[in-house]
Amino acid sequence: MPIYRCNKCGFVSEDAQTPVGAQAACGRCGTLSTVYGTVFFVEELVKRLASATRELNAVKQAVVSAPPPTEPQPARTDSLASVGQHAALQQWFTAQKIEAQIDPANVDTSGFFDDAALRLGDNYALFGELIDRLRYAYRKSHGWVNLELARLPQKDAQAVNQLCRNLYEHTFFARYHYQKPEKIVRLTLQTAPAIRQFFDGGWLEWYALVCLLEHARGRGAGFSCARGVKVVFPNEDLHELDVVCLPEGQPPICIECKSGEFRRDIDKYLRLRKRLNIDRGRFLILSTDLTQEQAAGLSAMYDLSFVSLQTLREHLQRLL
């Protein structure tokens, strides 16, 4: 028997008098509603129910299968973002007759940039492709990225999915959706400039800063640190230092971070190190493209210290 459902009040009723496809007045509110064959009507309901059930099961499975984060969580604090914390470093630059412009907000760890950077850097072998995809998408003005996880081992796929969801929870993405059957993560990019800068290489600066803070705090003495320091030399040459730390009783440590090509900049860094009068062992070039062996080889060739993500902490341990 034909049947209709009122779109206004939701009333459902059989109607033997009205032909299928025609409209009948709702028996409750009088609104005209289309009459359907009962079999067709039930089939459409079953399809919608099945679709909703699949989506719900996919969400439940993603929650159950995703492993909890095991990475260390940096302390949420803004104690470094103060003029007083930067005072010693500012005095050192002044003594070198160098004007230094330091933004305290660049080392404010009360947000989630440092946490995200630590997870990316410590698992770069797995997450490096994600970073490259995001950076490429931003540079090409794409609004989204799809990650096909089916080709990855199950454990790695779960880790990537968990990272994407955590980053979404901390607003690094505007939207996150995981299609369980196809194992596809769909990400809508965040348009905020700070997020774009983070994925375009800023994450590596945050990673270097966090590693420096781990060792500086561990030595039990005072220190002054900064990120993104603009320095102006007496001849008005302008440079930007990615990460700088001045441990109490020691010369500064400078880390230049390169998430892309760095070879053409070697001569620039050689001149910059000499102008800052920093020992080669305390002027580091951190590159994501270097292996441990390559970093050691380049350090032997030039008056600079090249480090990889795997050797950064070891090198800092020797300095601090």
Rank of each mutant, 00 (worst) to 15 (best):
E205M: 04
G143C: 02
V35W: 01
G21S: 10
C211A: 04
V46D: 15
L272Q: 06
D242N: 07
F112Y: 14
Q61A: 14
L80W: 09
S51A: 15
T311D: 05
I266R: 01
T188A: 13
Q310A: 12
T191I: 09
F199H: 10
Q317P: 00
Q91G: 00
V83M: 12
D132P: 00
A105I: 07
C9V: 07
H215S: 02
V39C: 07
R135V: 01
L212G: 02
A95R: 14
A150D: 11
Q190C: 14
A75D: 08
A25S: 15
L130F: 14
L309W: 00
A52M: 13
V35T: 04
H315Q: 15
Y207D: 01
V63A: 14
Y36P: 07
G228Q: 05
W203K: 03
C29S: 09
G218K: 08
D15Q: 02
A117V: 05
P251N: 12
I184M: 09
L187Y: 01
Q101L: 13
L320Y: 15
P72H: 04
I255C: 10
E43H: 10
T94A: 12
K268I: 00
S51I: 09
A81M: 04
R271E: 13
C254P: 00
K140Y: 03
V185P: 05
L209A: 08
G21R: 09
S141P: 00
